[in-house]
Simulated assay, not measured.
Amino acid sequence: MSNTTTAPTRLLGGTELPAAGTWRLDPGHAEVGFVGRHFMLTKVRGRFTGVDGTITIGERPEDSHVSVTIDMASVHSGDTARDDHLRSADFFDVTNHPSATFASTQVTWNGNRGTMTGNLTIKGTTRPVTLNIEYLGHARDPWNNDRAIFSAHGKINREDWHLTWNMLLETGGVLVSKEIELQLEVELIRQPTAN
């Protein structure tokens, strides 16, 4: 049920933002995706369907914190052979590293946009990542849950996480791009506060 003791949104500096408190990521409405290039030309998209996370929104947006866990075996790119390869030791090595995690360390905010820097751990390696974030708005679903909708994107070099598998092309270049674009579209569900 919805937390009806306080409004689900508030005005800060004239901008509507989600109320402070605990929000949970809705896995059924979370697009945690990535885009790479094949032959250095064609965009190849993938996504993870197994995502769980808690977002604590601070009274000041800068005091917010995000903690997310990703089931790496849940990767889907539209091609079974490619997905199996991504799960193998060449890439995510899901047998030995079934989960990836992200924990924020710093948030900056201006209006309905901001940046979030955090530690992304993949395959046992942790590196900082910065995402550009946008708050898209609030909705109340038919079951009276308050939802906050966010979009985020950023770029990483996959080799920073030792995801180095590749093949050289006869024409020059490599088969799979090192640069990967992260694209996230998520809905957060407001959690009740303790009485």
Rank of each mutant, 00 (worst) to 15 (best):
K43T: 14
R82Y: 12
P61H: 05
T164A: 13
T9D: 06
S64K: 01
H65L: 06
T69K: 10
V66N: 01
E159C: 10
D52S: 13
V51C: 10
Q106M: 12
P98R: 08
R147H: 07
L25H: 07
T101A: 01
T101Q: 06
L17A: 03
R82M: 05
V68N: 00
G28L: 11
M72C: 10
G33D: 00
G14V: 06
A73D: 09
T56P: 01
T5A: 14
G111W: 05
G114W: 04
A152T: 13
V176I: 15
R113T: 15
S77P: 06
P61K: 06
N144I: 06
V186Y: 03
L11A: 15
L120T: 07
S177R: 04
M167P: 02
L120Q: 07
E134V: 13
A73N: 12
G111F: 02
A20S: 15
K123Y: 07
A30R: 02
D141N: 15
W23E: 05
H138G: 09
T105S: 14
V176T: 15
T4Y: 12
P27N: 06
I156H: 06
N144G: 02
A103E: 15
T95F: 00
N112Y: 01
W109L: 04
I189M: 09
M1Y: 13
G137M: 06
T117M: 05
F39W: 11
M116S: 13
H38A: 02
G172F: 12
A194E: 14
L184F: 14
W161A: 05
S88K: 04
A148S: 11
P27E: 05
R140T: 15
T171A: 14
T171M: 13
N119F: 05
D26E: 14
Y135W: 05
P27V: 03
H85M: 12
I133K: 05
G46D: 09
A19T: 14
G21T: 02
T56L: 02
I55G: 01
G46I: 10
T115S: 12
T56R: 11
L168M: 11
L169V: 11
L17F: 07
S64N: 09
S177I: 09
A103H: 12
F48A: 02
L41D: 05
H153K: 09
E181C: 01
I133P: 03
W161T: 04
A152H: 08
D79F: 08
T130Y: 04
G53D: 04
D26K: 02
W23G: 00
P142W: 00
S99K: 15
E62H: 07
P8V: 03
V186G: 01
K155E: 14
E187I: 12
A20F: 06
D90Q: 06
T22H: 08
N3A: 12
S99I: 02
H29S: 09
T9Q: 02
K155T: 14
R190T: 10
T126P: 09
P61C: 09
G118P: 04
S2L: 10
T121S: 13
F102D: 10
N119I: 05
E31T: 05
D71Q: 11
G21P: 03
D26H: 03
T121N: 02
F102H: 07
K155V: 11
W161V: 05
A81C: 03
F102G: 13
P98C: 07
E59F: 00
T56D: 08
R140N: 10
E187G: 08
T49H: 06
